[in-house]
Amino acid sequence: MTKVSMTVNGKAVSGEVEGRTLLATFLREDLHLTGTHIGCDTSQCGACVVHVDGQAVKACTMFAAEAEGAEVTTIEGIAAADGTMSPVQKAFQEHHGLQCGFCTPGMVMSAHALLAENPDPSEAEIREYLQGNICRCTGYHNIVKAIAAAAAEMRPVAAE
């Protein structure tokens, strides 16, 4: 067992993990942050996307030990402390960008990462960016709409 320490959603945390423990498992089982979901075992589905040092990462592709010292943000860390949802989260609700909700945390985390990189993505760019996030419910239509709407909401209004 190895001791790991990292910052998760702004809080310093530590735990004892086996070398083979995945970051996704550590978040879910040790930190009880069950919003990070595990939908496959081949790093394809993207339900476990979190941010590690600002980058979108599939938490099943990383050992917990590799996140030593890292700043990790999970879906639980996206809304404001008073519960106000982020523009992306609000847009997903407004545009019905989720059904069963299982892929949703990963989708929201990927969408935030996309918009940090590219504040004004085209439909094609949104679809391309979501290659690593599988949704079986929505057919993606409303996810794409929601991300485009969130992008518009988040872009600074041009000065008059």
């Binding site: 809304a79 949802m85 997903f92 069963c100 909700g101």
Partner: peptide, 8 residues
């Protein structure tokens, strides 16, 4: 939606 969108 709120619970699904916030990891709850």
């Amino acid at each position: 939606d709120v619970r699904f969108l916030t990891g709850k």
